[in-house]
Design a binder for these strands. Sequence first.
DNA 1: GTTAGCACTCACATCTGACGAGTGCTATTT
DNA 2: AAATAGCACTCGTCAGATGTGAGTGCTAAC
Lengths: 343, 343
Amino acid sequence: MVMELSARSRQILEAIVEDYIATAEPVGSSAVARRHAMTLSSATVRNVMANLEEMGLLTSPHTSAGRIPTEKAYRFYVDSLVALRQVSRDEKRQIVSHCRQAGIGMSGILKETSRTLSQLSNYMGIVVAPSFTADVFRHIEFIRIGHCKILAILVSSKGALQNRLIDTDDDYASEELIRMGNYLNERMQGLTITQVRELILEEMTSEKARYDQLLSRALKISEQAVRVEGDEIFVEGQARILDQPEFSDAGRMKEIYQAFEQKGLLVQLLSRCMTAEGVQIYIGSETSLSQSAGISLITSRFVTSSNTIGMLGVIGPTRMGYSSVIPIVDYTARMVSKLLSEV
Amino acid sequence: MVMELSARSRQILEAIVEDYIATAEPVGSSAVARRHAMTLSSATVRNVMANLEEMGLLTSPHTSAGRIPTEKAYRFYVDSLVALRQVSRDEKRQIVSHCRQAGIGMSGILKETSRTLSQLSNYMGIVVAPSFTADVFRHIEFIRIGHCKILAILVSSKGALQNRLIDTDDDYASEELIRMGNYLNERMQGLTITQVRELILEEMTSEKARYDQLLSRALKISEQAVRVEGDEIFVEGQARILDQPEFSDAGRMKEIYQAFEQKGLLVQLLSRCMTAEGVQIYIGSETSLSQSAGISLITSRFVTSSNTIGMLGVIGPTRMGYSSVIPIVDYTARMVSKLLSEV
DNA sequence: GTTAGCACTCACATCTGACGAGTGCTATTT
DNA sequence: AAATAGCACTCGTCAGATGTGAGTGCTAAC
């Protein structure tokens, strides 16, 4: 939406948003005039503020209080006003060193990342590990590694792989396993992992499988191999939400916590952002969390060496320090991508 | 501690504890007399209550309020008064069916269990997956499964195993891997997994490893193989804490959440309970959580098919529904043990 | 030993009025 | 015409005053 606002109005709006972000108190006309050393009197500011209110950018909680920004105002602020801070040397150091100290496993790195995000932003850090259920199936292989023990290796078209140790009831000969692999590799070409799984489940109940013992056993093992564990998701710093004065009352908070306990909800929320590159910002109702009143979300995606995509970001109040959090999220996403592609 | 209390005093104490658990309000003498249909007047009850207060079992928040039980009273209640409820048919059904629907992986089962615990108790459910770092090392084996890809299988004396796929810089021949395995199996006999890891790290920096390239490479791979991921811990139902009126103020709650965010703290807390069998109960300061004011913990341990031990339980306010939660925790631990030993 | 009665305490809710931050309007200045 | 000073008005907040009632401890009677 294009806003035609005079330079002065924009400046005042910016001042109000930033003041409110800093203090969480409705800001009055004189505060703006004073704190921003403008050459304007409070009365003038008042007139401008009345305008802004009319345009839906400000509201007053009651007649004799200052004004607070609406979601629309935050949107406008983020889109055209905010002066992004640089990520400080120290913050960069923290991001990188925390990642490194986590050791190898991707889980470790991501977990540490969510903690870092939370620490640097003072809000809630969140990271969703890449999942490859949507990737296209490329190759599966079964390797016998002991009595009744099979290793299944599943490769996606993007090169991501998942391996799984399977205990079976019977012992399988290596040749049989190879035949099984060939069968699957032929049949499942071009499907996504999710589709492969569905197809296998379907065939397991089919007529043919009921009479073909070999097939039936093969399917049973394959099913285990393509079973994908639920999306890994790391949330850190939930307690920091309690620092925010707007959530200091118990009822509000409970809503929010309950919402977040459904991690599925978060995944859903974040996977929406997967498609776009760069930092994405969702303000208040834009998050489409039902209980979202007053919640904002800043995310960016990262990529792994195998080109799978994950999301990381920060959840905080609408009244969030956008100018510093946006660059942090951006930088962190870049660093995580870099780090994961090195592995 | 042996308490000599008349039957009447015990009855009254029980009534007070249960009333307080139900209402979270200080209970007065008349409430006891009325609600428990005793043949006593409130005045008599008052005398008894005065006694109980003297013995350190009750306190009054202020002169003209009812009385509330002290930790000591809860302890006494749990030890000798509480009438444990039966686990209802429906609850049993829920526990079992939730476990089963979670599918195979242990993680899945345990996660679902923590959720069930939370649902049934209406407090916070918590499960710590068994870790085998304390187990004794028995056997390690490296299998080459592809170019620069090795599968390491680590077996503990209790039969628990961990497998890990390792990407290496160089390609290793199968014979070399076998030699490496033999070397380790010989040297590490009788040590715990933790000790094995320490020994390997130590040797990596030793003189010998610096000049013996083969050894150095072997150690590097072994180190990855015995690296154990942090204890898995599942916490569910954190939001339910907010239901408890005693935590409805923001400051209290923040403390608690911050305490729980250090999952390490929880692990430490729970691993203390590992040694004893059966249901363990920690009331208030007995939990030795510094911020524990008003927190109680009911846990029990469970065992897997490989004899490793995990913990599960419920965290709630001291003012917890012991009579129903204790049996639930007990039953759940039994069921999880049974389920995991079937796998 | 039990109970009724009574004076006493104290948290809590409700009311009140003073205060002040902030507004909108209007008349005045630039 | 835009900016400002002045002023009356609104309304939330805070502090003190007051009443209410639940609950107690004590004493005297049963």
